[in-house]
Write a protein that binds this DNA or RNA. Structure first.
Length: 910
DNA sequence: CTGAATGAAAC
DNA sequence: GTTTCATTCAG
């Protein structure tokens, strides 16, 4: 039994590192960081496993251990949610490692622990909150999850471990599904499964899709799914954090309770629920999940298209009935319409007339379908309601009911027609759905993208700032969505996604035509659309560029950060704020594109809630039929074509959304949150992960320097107890600034830096901050009494020991635990002084020197020694090489110490 | 596989 | 109170 599992794992992984892999799977961030390629591969493998698991179903798990094991293997992957400290470690480990390349993970962990200890309560709270949120989401996603194997402790044994864990974990089948879902989500590609799913006959006919979509709508499950979005829409949801909502959604849409819960739930939570829900639906559905957000988008588009199609659908259906449902006929019909449209194009009036004609025809048919359509209608209506643009239908003069259809049909037809004419930026305004398509285009035209990037950034700043996101949302939702949908439909019918360019052109035309028709559409600024598009394009490129430019380590961080990005950190962690606007070109480039995407997505999400439900149904249908597969494949291709950037873009988009959520939360814009969650729901598991990533990324990062200083001060506090310093909080902030500042000086390498530091801050502020820092650190002998937690003992013992060992090779040991404490205190005091020094990479060194000095006066020999030890640690962290020269500063204090410090450092490093 | 940290959950 | 285990990855 076990063996089989192992084999699989081993085979899958290829290397011996299962745990990592699991981790990677569970945490997209990690995977991304390590290797994009590896991730994909892993994901694929995982998908397979997941599928198996799903197939096995709940029964399998419980009954057969062996089989279950296989299934479970994926389940096992589900890791218990990280606690605050782990989150902190995860977020900062890279930084620590950067500073102390020599340091192994253990050492890094120690440092992280120190940092954590020093970390400002407020900052800690952020992590704790995040951890709790994530945990809640996780639990929702995995209701049966148990942290520890109740009875089994044999976890250690390799083979047994798996079994016990599985049993112990007691994932309900659903939960198991949920777990895999995230993985699936990661893996965008599930071609095999999808193909399998799709029946050739079904594949051929779009009608099937429509039917399926209808069916789905009718289906309770689907309805529930749709309902969810509504729930999310409810004001209550807004309040909840995205994660929570995520979890709830994932857990089960069907639950009536959900709404209440959702209020509290965060996006992650919703995601979790969605994912769970999808998992529940069925194995096939689970497979569907595998589809990434792209798929979801496609589904959405399809849904939207369905709505549009409904009109056309009449024809389709008829054709289908008579004919096995050919796409060709549809195409023909569309073409005809297009032709008409073209003719009309010259004269808007004519167009409308024709439109009406075709529309009327459609309407007639629609009447027949009416009952069915009504459902969709509702969705559409909602959409329309949201989007003023849609009002155009009134212009058409059609009945409101039918008007929706006409609009859609119109838009669709318009698109097609337009395809011939090459449009420009105005057309650029891409609908959400279109976005996907656009990406491929972008690939085709890299140069433009790059150029656009800068411009887009600049524009974005102006536009975005000046104009709230709302405008974009509305537009996108209405026109872009419809267009995208239509486009998608067409593409599906044709089977050609590849014609991205053409598609774009048509879209553009459509817009133009639409603009001709309805001033409303025109009203929307084409520039923005263009920008958004450019942004997307730029994103991909930028992501690539950034990666290249930055060191590998950073890349991971940067990626995550970039994704989550700019906003979250600035907003949440620091008041820095509008960094984006100010952001330096490098950073801004990365961040901006993402933002644009995020905005887009957000907008999209927000505009159509009802659509979502429809989308969900469509998505399911598509998946079942296999139609989606082809679409997805095309989309994926386009995205992938960009390469890594694609995945990153994808993530970035979501991350952006999350950002928006965060921002909105901070800023207070609830709307965004609501809308996003809905979309998230569609994304399901994937989103959950993404949400997690986003949130994780949004977590504040602190510069090592800050921590070092803090560490010095804090430890002392703990031990001394008496001294309490409010400093920590202040310090944290200051540190953040410093950090950013430092980074600027040191390297522009990290995107994170940029993120942290506000663009505005720039160097000067940073300097100021640094200066300020010393003050913070200096004084207070705070004594936090440490909240010794349950594990205090452990900690105390370990810490003492470690410190002793670290500090001095031989000397320290005699000093004893007490000494350890003192040294830290001394260091703290000294640090503040040190801070005065200018900030450079050397800052640390200087700080060290300063520390030494200060220490000397207070504690003669011993203090000096400890201070040295502390310095050594710091130095080690930073690399002795860099800062040794700070000696100049040292001179003031104690020349002797300087020399010693290096030695100590070396020891510490070792 | 171990460990270094912290914390939550389960015992 | 103690044990497990979450992340990370060199050793």
């Amino acid at each position: 039994m076990k063996g089989s599992n192992r084999n699989k794992d081993s085979t899958e992984e290829g290397t011996g590192k299962r745990p990592k892999r699991k981790c990677l799977q569970w945490h997209p961030l990690l995977a991304k960081k390590l290797l994009d390629f590896s991730e994909e591969e892993e994901e694929e493998d995982e998908e397979e496993d997941i599928d198996k698991v799903q197939l096995l179903g709940a029964d399998g798990l419980e009954q057969d251990v062996g089989e279950t094991e296989d299934d479970e293997s994926p389940e096992q992957r589900a890791r218990r949610p990280m606690n605050a400290f782990l989150l902190f470690c995860k977020r900062h480990r890279s930084l620590v490692r950067q500073e102390h390349p020599r340091l192994d993970n253990r050492g890094a962990t120690k440092i992280l622990a120190d940092w954590w200890a020093v970390l400002d309560p407020k900052e800690k709270q952020k992590y704790t909150d995040m951890a709790k949120e994530y945990k809640d989401a996780f639990m929702k996603a995995n209701p049966g999850y148990k942290w520890c194997p109740t009875t089994n402790k044999p976890v250690k044994s390799p083979t047994p471990t798996v079994n016990p864990r599985k049993k112990l974990w007691a994932f309900p089948p659903d939960s198991s599904r949920d777990l895999p879902s995230p993985k699936k989500a990661k893996t965008e590609e599930m071609p095999q499964l999808n193909f399998g799913m799709a029946d050739p006959t079904q594949m051929g006919g779009l009608s099937m899709l429509l039917l399926a979509g209808e069916h789905a709508l009718g289906t309770p499950e689907i309805s529930s799914g749709t309902c969810r979005p509504d729930v999310s829409e409810s004001p209550e949801l807004r309040q909840k954090s995205p994660l929570f909502q995520f979890a709830e959604i994932s857990s089960s849409t069907s639950h009536p309770d959900v709404p209440t819960k959702q209020c509290q739930a965060s996006a992650l939570f919703q995601f979790a629920e969605i994912s769970s829900h999808t998992s529940q639906l069925g194995g096939t559905e689970s497979v569907k999940r595998c589809g990434k957000s792209a798929l979801f988008q496609l589904a959405e588009m399809c849904l939207a298209s369905e709505g549009v199609k409904m009109e056309d659908t009449k024809e389709w259906k008829k054709a289908k009935e008579s004919d096995g449902g050919r796409i060709t006929e549809l195409e023909k019909g569309q073409e005809e319409r297009e032709i008409k449209m073209e003719k009309t194009h010259e004269d808007g009036l004519q167009k409308e007339a024709e439109f009406e004609k075709s529309f009327k025809d459609n309407v007639r048919e629609a009447k027949e379908l009416r009952n069915f359509e009504e459902l969709q209608m509702d969705d559409v209506m909602a959409i329309k309601m949201e989007d003023p643009k849609e009002i155009r239908k009134e212009e058409l003069g059609e009945d409101q009911k039918y008007s929706h259809f006409p609009d859609f049909s119109y838009s669709a037809s318009s698109k097609i027609i337009i395809s011939d004419v090459p449009n420009r930026k105005d057309h650029m305004c891409h609908p959400h759905g279109i976005m996907i398509i656009e990406d491929p285009t972008a690939l085709n035209k890299p140069e433009k993208l790059k150029k656009k990037k800068k411009k887009s950034k600049v524009d974005r700043h102006g536009n975005d700032k000046s104009t709230p996101k709302k405008t974009c949302k509305k537009r996108q939702s209405s026109e872009s969505d419809i267009e995208s949908v239509i486009y998608t439909i067409e593409a599906v019918a044709k089977g050609d996604w590849g014609v991205d360019k053409l598609g774009d052109a048509p879209r553009k035309k459509v817009r133009t035509s639409s603009s001709g028709k309805g001033s409303i559409l025109d009203a929307k600024p084409p520039k923005k659309k263009v920008k958004s598009r450019e942004k997307k394009m730029s994103k991909e490129k930028s992501s690539d560029i950034t990666k290249e430019s930055r060191p590998p380590d950073f890349i991971s961080i940067s990626a995550s950060k970039s994704i989550s990005g700019e906003v979250p950190e600035g907003i949440k962690a620091e008041p820095l704020t509008p960094t984006e606007d100010v952001l330096p070109p490098n950073l801004s480039g990365q961040a901006k594109p993402e933002d644009s995407e995020c905005h887009r997505k957000i907008e999209t999400c927000g505009s159509r809630k009802s659509e979502r439900s429809c989308k969900g149904a469509l998505y399911k249908t598509l998946v079942s039929e296999g139609m989606l597969t082809s679409l997805r494949a095309n989309v994926d291709r386009g995205k992938r074509s960009s390469g890594k950037g694609n995945s990153s873009d994808h993530e970035g988009c979501w991350s952006e959304e999350s950002w928006t959520f965060n921002q909105s939360g901070t800023s207070g814009s609830k709307k965004f949150k609501k809308t996003k969650p809905k979309e998230d729901s569609l994304l399901g598991s994937t989103k959950l992960d993404e949400e997690f990533e986003k949130k994780f990324n949004s977590l504040p990062q602190y510069s090592p320097v800050t921590f070092d200083r803090k560490c010095v001060s804090i430890p002392r506090k703990k031990k001394k107890t008496g001294n309490i310093s409010s400093e920590p909080t202040k310090t944290s902030k200051g540190s953040g600034d410093k950090w950013s500042h430092k980074q600027f000086f040191l390297d522009a390498i990290h995107p994170t830096e940029a993120i942290f530091s506000e663009d505005k801050n720039t160097i000067e502020p940073a300097l100021k901050v640094k200066n300020a820092l010393p003050t913070f650190n200096t004084p207070e002998p705070t004594a936090m009494q440490e909240p010794l937690v349950g594990s205090q003992k452990r900690k105390a013992r370990k810490t003492k020991i470690t410190h002793l060992v670290r500090t001095a090779d031989g000397r320290v040991s005699p000093a004893g635990g007490t000494l350890d404490d003192k040294p830290k205190e001394q260091l703290q005091r000294s640090l503040p002084k040190a801070t005065e020094t200018d900030c450079n990479d050397d800052c640390v060194h200087r700080a060290e020197a300063g520390e030494t000095r200060s220490s000397t006066p207070e504690m003669p020999a011993v203090s000096a020694f400890f201070s040295l030890a502390a310095l050594a640690e710091v130095a080690a962290m930073e690399n002795v090489h860099r800062g040794q020269r700070s000696t100049s500063l040292t001179h003031d204090g104690q020349p002797k110490e300087m020399p010693q410090a290096p030695v100590l450092i070396s020891c510490a490093d070792q």
